[in-house]
Design a protein around this nucleic acid. Structure first.
Lengths: 239, 239
DNA sequence: ACAGTGCGCTAACATTTGATAACTCGGCGC
DNA sequence: GCGCCGAGTTATCAAATGTTAGCGCACTGT
């Protein structure tokens, strides 16, 4: 059941059997959320962190004028709020974009991992660092890439991340979001988001229908995106 | 000499004398960089992490068309590349925006801290988590705030962070960057950056001359920025 | 079968942002 | 003193992006 988590953490360094069973002991209390529901509320002080088993979720903030911005997309094997273990207070919310099945990690147990299992601690720390690396890549995309390139980059990132946890199907993956939700990822109006999607479609590198994205030309997509996966730290080495 | 680091880490939870001396033992090898020099090169695999003692630095990425985007600003007491300890390969560069004095932390020593000092490990982890929280706030600012609000938010953030490490002077702080560099923070053209700065100046909430920013109306500045410092985790509690 | 609804899509127009160029001003070397 | 140069500023025009509105289609409940 923790397959995705093992695939995710295990891609960076090997996970011992002991560590796998520590993780198995850590994660308890499965829950489900419907699309549109808050998984974690902004301002809350959760006593546990949440791992996605199935579904798509996103971190977000809402501004006074009602504008919403997603700050990350979370897939199976991702902790959506591991940092709440030390940050204590959530400064943003996490919403389920599709039906989500999750499992929880008590902060008290996480704490004891930091006391007793240094290597596993480093792997969990690393997981939050990659989160940060993705954030930086998003900042670059928002600030200096063309919108088409930004969208292409997002698709590259999602494809590669989904591949790690075996949620791709050939060159396709499921992306259960509306264009309005995607607009809240890129920081665009819905109308302009539609224009950008059309442009990328017309360039012939992707198809997107029925909530399924198909990459028609992976080379060219990466080229448009200037995609360099270094920031995802997908090499296996001692950490 | 590690005053800023102690102030920075100590704002979140108390640092024991033992922990302070562990940190003192950790940080060795002072170096200086001139404005414009790379402190850490993109693509490198440093064997140590870098702490700013004095000066202003920034993380950045450069795109194929020459466009540059800063992803963070780093002030005294900040680790600019603590995550390189686990991420291994730098996926971006760090540049000195003003003359910088730094001190280094060998990754081997950092590793031994994770083996022997769980509480200090959590505080260092926390430091990187706040980095991530700041990234998320930047994403929101880039995507959904007006440019004037974005700039106001940046000034709020810098002021509060600089206050923690005692680098403010009343309601003023030193900001040794050109408008072109600031444009690479907000992701704007230089010309438009200038317009945005003019607008914020004309609203009467800040003055900016000789590389010194003075906040004339702190309440109104926070209001324009919709600034909520929760994401900086500035409360002292057990971590 | 029917109307209601959410979503994708497009048109027309307004506003924001970028590109290019020119002008000012102060510092600095000669 | 003179001229160069970098930084800030402004003007003008072009391109990107937002706003408002409306259409069509698939899906849903009745």
């Amino acid at each position: 059941m923790l397959e995705s988590l093992f695939l995710n953490l295990g891609q960076h360094d090997s996970l011992s059997d002991d560590e796998q069973s520590l993780l198995g002991n850590l994660m308890t209390g499965e829950r489900s959320f419907a699309a549109g529901q808050d998984i974690v509320a902004s301002g809350s002080r959760p006593a546990y962190s949440t791992l996605i088993l199935d579904g798509l979720a996103a971190r977000y903030k809402v501004l006074a004028d009602g504008g919403r911005q997603f700050t990350s997309l979370q897939i199976p094997g991702d902790f959506v709020d591991l940092y709440a273990f030390l940050l204590k207070t959530m400064d943003h919310g996490v919403i389920a974009l599709s039906p989500c099945r999750v499992i929880l990690a008590d902060h008290s147990k996480l704490r004891s991992i930091t006391e007793r299992a240094p290597h596993l601690t480093r792997l969990l720390w690393l997981d939050t660092l990659i989160d940060g690396a993705i954030h930086r890549e998003w900042i670059v995309a928002m600030g200096r890439r063309s919108k088409v390139s930004h969208l292409a980059h997002l698709f590259c990132e999602l494809f590669v991340r989904l591949q790690v946890v075996k949620r791709t199907n050939g060159m396709s993956f499921h992306l259960p979001v509306s264009q309005a939700e995607l607009a809240d990822v890129l920081g665009l109006s819905v109308v302009h988001m539609n224009r950008v999607i059309s442009a990328l479609r017309n360039s012939g590198v992707i198809a997107w229908a029925n909530h399924t994205v198909t990459i028609l030309d992976w080379q060219k997509l990466q080229q448009i995106a200037e995609f360099d996966p270094t920031y995802l730290s997908m090499t296996r080495e001692p950490r």
